[in-house]
Design a protein around this nucleic acid. Sequence first.
DNA 1: AATATAAGCAACCGCATGGTG
DNA 2: TCACCATGCGGTTGCTTATAT
Length: 463
Amino acid sequence: MVAHSGVCDGLETVLRRPNGGSTSSSSASGGSGGGVAAKHALKKGTWTAAEDAILMEYVRKNGEGNWNALQKNTSLARCGKSCRLRWTNHLRPNLKKGSFTQEEERLILHLHAQLGNKWARMAAQLPGRTDNEIKNFWNTRIKRRIRQGLPLYLTGITVEKSPASSPVQPQLQSQPQPQSIGPAAIRGWPPLPIPNRTISPLPIPNSLTNLHSMTILSPKELVPNSHHDLNNSSFPGFSTTPQTSPLISPTSSSFQFSPFNFNQGLQRTTQWPGTVYDTFVKPVELPSNQLFLSPPVKKSVFQAKPELETNPGVSIPKSSRIEQPETLLESNESLQKYGDLLNLQDEFSLKPADAWEISACSNNSYPETSPGMKNQVKEENEYGNDEISKLLQSISTPSDISEGFNLLVGNITMPPLDLGSGVVVTEDSLGLDMQQIASIFQADPGYIDVNRQATWDNLPRMC
DNA sequence: AATATAAGCAACCGCATGGTG
DNA sequence: TCACCATGCGGTTGCTTATAT
């Protein structure tokens, strides 16, 4: 289907800046005066109280939806899209205003670790909050914290390093040590935004005979364990409506991927925020060189997003703010292998709803940026990522992965995060962090699409 | 006090998806 | 099957406000 423009697009608009200035986007309606042309003169910019009143009155009478009719049936010169956004983000009842609470921030962190940049889905778990709010929150506070080497978590979640340090811990200690460190930060989160790239699946190899028992937990295979079901739980400060997290919904498109689990049969999986699933682990036949392909171990480093905005000395066109490492992805043999893996969908008839996000890793160096930028990015990413980077460089087999993960997280202790009402996020339930590491090797047997795109969004932050 | 810079936020834009005729 | 429409989502922009120099 051909993508089309949004409702506002293509219509004559009047862009009115908050300072009062306005620009007409086209001369088509200008000068014709009144009539149809006037109807097409859509206003942009900040909403006024009068406009809000019109919008609220319309919704009160007609309910939500049919936003374009609003523009036709009222004097409001706003496109439907704009109306919907205004209503959703500012006018609808029960909106929570003000700063995020610590609990909300924690929840966002957990959700983001699970979902990535799925703001709307995250907002669904935060009553009264909008996707835009969450997105802004993440893009400002969180990114700033990461850039500054501050902990993602404010308080309450503390990572304690055991006396028995892992071999890579000295790397961490060379950096400023925050009082509390989120495990996600240590383990290379958030992911990098990367440009989209189409992955062309490779032909399915005929010789899928070399077995690796790979855990695929499709939503349909997730059976909530009744005595752990959270349907009757609620989070403090949130709606008393039973929270049905997409993370735990069997119908959700999000589910646990446990690449380190090579067993078969019924297994128990604890998922945030505390639900336990009895899961049938489907054995998957994979050629050993496909799923857990040993990447070019030599310099298997991951690309860090250049934080160009922090380097004012670098002037880069807006369109290429983030260097697009297309070429390096194209040349990445591992990625092609992942493409092979994608074809497994056919093998197991998994549904798009079961899709995993694809992430790709690269073994190339930074995009062309200034040396200073490289250093900065390097420094920013050394903190908390070197251990993973080093770990991954040594990975060559599934057992390596498993052992490596244990090595990595075995020395990190995270106290349970009490969300109240008996909901406690334990370290076990933070399988999400495993996901981040797992994502490096991620593939999507659940959904194959020749236009399948991988994004940097899912790429762990590595250097 | 003036200016520069950073942070916060609202709104827009492009694209994707699903429904309908 | 196709085109069109409505809606939703995520990324980005640019203005306002806060903070630093």
